[in-house]
Structures are given as structure tokens and as C-alpha cells.
Amino acid sequence: MLRGSILAVALAALAACALPGTVTGPDATTLRLTGGIVVAAPQGYCIDPQVTRPQRGFAFLAACAAINAASDKPVPDRMALITVQVGDANSALVAGSEPAFRAFLETQQGATLLGVSDIGGPVDVLSTGAATNAVTVYTRDTAPPDIVGSQPESWRLFTDLRGRVVTITVRGLTQAPLTQVQSREVLDQMLQQLRAANSVQQSTT
């Protein structure tokens, strides 16, 4: 009886951990990352199985047709590259500190932080914003971006989910660059998908 109780507790603990999943194929649109954070792609976007690293809390999304030439999913209105990065446990830092975090991103130290995180190198901060549990920043790379063929401007959004900071980045393509407004539309779509997938009801920026 005791052994059965221990096994039940162990199974419950594993379920609570919400272990990361795996990308099921080239047309996958949802994925569980570390910490139990679920990524859900906007319409026309899929999760790239080659670049995504669920155990590291990283997901890379692009147009389904760009990942899989045989995909029958519709082409998105805005072609972009989207990344989602989940922070470590207890890394949440946005909710309740939105104005201060926004102000920090406008400093040279904040620009330096943005330049060494996610995708890209040194950046100039062009615009910032803040709302409930969301801080946004629009930047331009001052060096060639790490992803060949991507435009230098990108939106980044920071939000807290399940005790972790989550970063969403949206970047257009050099062959079909997005305006600041267009890339922001994709960012807002991704945030809505992320919050819906994780049952978080909060206001957007």
C-alpha cells in the first residue's frame, strides 16, 4: 500500500512538471515548452521542428509553407519569423513592474541586454510600450542579424506566465519587409495565441 502511495505521488509530481513536448511534424501548430508553457501559432504559421528546442524553452515559428513546401495551410497575411523564449523557473519580472522595466529598456544597459539575448546582436531602441503584464520594445540591429534574410527591425514583448518571463520576438524578411505597424500586428496575434493557449486573460498593449 505504501509503495502504491509513493508511486501515485511520483506520477502526480511528474504531471505537475508539465514536461516539454516534441514537434510532431512540419505542420505542427502547438507545442509545450519547459515549464508547461504552451505555444500556439497564429493562422498560417507552424513550429519549425529543426530549430525549436522544447527542453530549452525555445520555439521558432515561420509560415507553414516556408517550413514544408507541401503544406496545405494558408499563407499568412504578414510573413515573419517568430521566436518564443521561456525563462527559468521564478524568472517572472514583468507584472507589477511594467513602467520600471520599460524605462530600463530605454537605457544603454537595456539596449545592451537586448543585444545579447534572443536572436540578433547590438541594437538601437526605437520605441517602447507598457501595459498590464506586457512590455514591448521595437529595435533596429546595428550589425547584421544572425538570421540571414531577416530585416534589421524587430518587435520584442516580455510577459510573465506561470512564474516565468516569456519573450516573443517578431522579425520580417528582407525580401518582404514589414513596417513597424505590420510586425506589431503579428506580435499582437502571437500574444493572443499564447495567452489563450495558457488560459491567461490579460489586457494587451
Results as ranks from 00 to 15, higher is better:
residue 84 V to Y: 05
residue 84 V to E: 03
residue 85 Q to R: 15
residue 86 V to W: 10
residue 87 G to M: 09
residue 92 A to S: 00
residue 92 A to R: 03
residue 92 A to V: 04
residue 92 A to W: 04
residue 93 L to W: 00
residue 94 V to A: 08
residue 96 G to Y: 12
residue 97 S to I: 02
residue 98 E to T: 06
residue 99 P to E: 09
residue 100 A to V: 09
residue 100 A to Y: 11
residue 100 A to I: 08
residue 101 F to E: 04
residue 101 F to K: 08
residue 101 F to Y: 08
residue 105 L to Q: 07
residue 106 E to L: 12
residue 107 T to F: 15
residue 110 G to L: 08
residue 111 A to G: 03
residue 111 A to Q: 06
residue 113 L to N: 04
residue 115 G to T: 04
residue 115 G to R: 02
residue 116 V to A: 09
residue 117 S to T: 13
residue 118 D to K: 15
residue 118 D to Q: 15
residue 118 D to A: 14
residue 119 I to N: 03
residue 119 I to M: 11
residue 120 G to V: 01
residue 122 P to H: 10
residue 122 P to W: 13
residue 123 V to D: 03
residue 123 V to E: 11
residue 124 D to F: 06
residue 125 V to K: 12
residue 125 V to F: 05
residue 125 V to R: 03
residue 126 L to T: 01
residue 126 L to S: 04
residue 126 L to Y: 09
residue 127 S to Q: 08
residue 128 T to V: 09
residue 129 G to K: 02
residue 130 A to K: 04
residue 131 A to D: 08
residue 132 T to N: 08
residue 133 N to D: 08
residue 133 N to C: 06
residue 134 A to R: 13
residue 135 V to P: 07
residue 135 V to K: 02
residue 135 V to E: 03
residue 135 V to Y: 10
residue 136 T to F: 11
residue 139 T to L: 03
residue 140 R to A: 10
residue 140 R to T: 10
residue 141 D to I: 00
residue 142 T to D: 02
residue 145 P to K: 14
residue 148 V to L: 11
residue 149 G to H: 02
residue 150 S to R: 05
residue 152 P to I: 07
residue 153 E to T: 13
residue 154 S to Y: 08
residue 155 W to A: 00
residue 156 R to V: 12
residue 156 R to L: 15
residue 156 R to M: 15
residue 157 L to V: 07
residue 158 F to D: 05
residue 158 F to V: 03
residue 162 R to H: 12
residue 162 R to F: 10
